[in-house]
């Protein structure tokens, strides 16, 4: 079957931008296969989301509404997603925390193959070929999936967000499938949201990232520079582990993967695991007092200096330039 199902990421009343990257994948895959794509949204009240999603060029928007779906849990979402997916050839969501948690569970239910975090899709003789990073981005594998339904998550930074296309797709309700024992044995206790007024890391056009060297001055140093650019703030694992910043700022193999137009690596030495999350950035600037740090091997513009002096100066001068 040649049709593609996008599982929308819908939380706290908002359709997350990750969904738009999955839609771009779906357009490419459906075009290659000569099929169409539909979008599935789940929630306790998903009407407004369905309306928004209906403008993204899908054949249909499918809505699964039930009180049990108010907050996402893989255990309660997977049965409905899998039931809907049986009528499609490919199921996709972004490789966000949501997609990475949900999709393997859906694949398990369908006994389907799952290809994670793909960066490219192409078709050859009616078969989709998925390209995905392995070994912290030091190799890419191109795979095919031999199962009736193919389940894939896509790297958000590798698929541009889909724009609205005009005509509104029809919206249809689908049946909600009750969760099994698994759903009865999990309880959502609370969500500690990290307050963040900045752009999402994976979507920002400029990322200002800091490492261990910044210590307790992490935010004091990076905030003015990020403000000057309207940038997102990122971090190395070492900065997160040491508690200098929030854990969800981590950029790397197992954190966020970003590919902004401009990436500042400040006091980051450049461990393989960090490079995996940022080396697709268009322009990389590194500021580090150690001129031999591995980060400089992939840096476009390197400044070997005391970052505690250079970063405030840079922030001030960028602010002045932007103020015109």
């Amino acid at each position: 079957m040649a049709n593609v199902l996008v599982v929308a990421e819908f939380a706290e009343g908002k359709v997350k931008k990750t969904t738009h990257s999955a839609v771009t994948f779906a357009r490419t895959a459906a075009t290659a296969l000569g099929g169409s794509y539909s979008i599935l949204v789940l929630g306790s009240s998903a009407g407004s989301a369905a309306e928004e999603l209906s403008k993204l060029g899908a054949a249909k928007v499918l809505v699964a509404e039930d009180a049990s779906l108010e907050h996402y849990l893989a255990e309660t979402y997977a049965p409905t997603v899998a039931a809907v997916a049986k009528d499609f050839g490919v199921v996709v969501a972004a490789a966000s925390a949501f997609g990475k948690d949900l999709l393997p569970r859906v694949a398990g239910k369908l006994e389907a193959g799952y290809a994670a975090d793909i960066t490219e899709v192409s078709a050859s003789g009616g078969t989709l070929h998925y390209k995905r990073p392995m070994y912290a981005g030091n190799a890419f594998g191109v795979c095919v999936i031999d199962s009736a339904v193919q389940v894939v998550s896509v790297r958000q930074s590798a698929f541009a967000a889909a724009e609205a296309t005009g005509a509104a797709a029809p919206i249809e309700k689908v049946a909600v499938v009750a969760a099994g024992q698994a759903g009865a044995r999990i309880e959502r206790v609370k969500f500690d949201q990290v307050k963040n007024e900045r752009p999402e890391l994976a979507e920002a056009s400029v990322v200002v990232a800091g490492g261990r060297a910044l210590k307790e001055q992490f935010y004091d140093l990076l905030n003015p520079l990020a403000d000057a650019f309207g940038a997102a703030i990122g971090a190395s694992r070492a900065a997160c582990d040491n508690g200098y910043c929030a854990s969800d700022l981590q950029v790397g193999q197992t954190g966020k993967v970003v590919a902004p137009g401009l990436y500042f690596a400040i006091g980051i030495s450049g461990a393989i695991q960090h490079l995996a999350g940022m080396k697709s950035s268009k322009v990389i600037v590194s500021i580090n007092k150690d001129g031999d740090a591995p980060i400089f091997q992939i840096t476009d513009y390197g400044l070997v200096t005391d970052l505690f002096k250079a970063v405030p100066e840079l922030a001030e001068k960028v602010r002045a330039i932007k103020a015109g």
């Binding site: 255990e75 799952y114 999990i186 695991q273």
Partner: peptide, 23 residues
């Protein structure tokens, strides 16, 4: 960190009909 797939735990939980707490 070789295949970087992040999948076995979630698939296993589904096969067993057990809850999963990933990450």
């Amino acid at each position: 960190v070789d295949g970087d797939s992040n999948q076995v735990g979630q698939i296993l939980a589904e096969l067993l009909d057990w809850p999963q707490a990933a990450f």
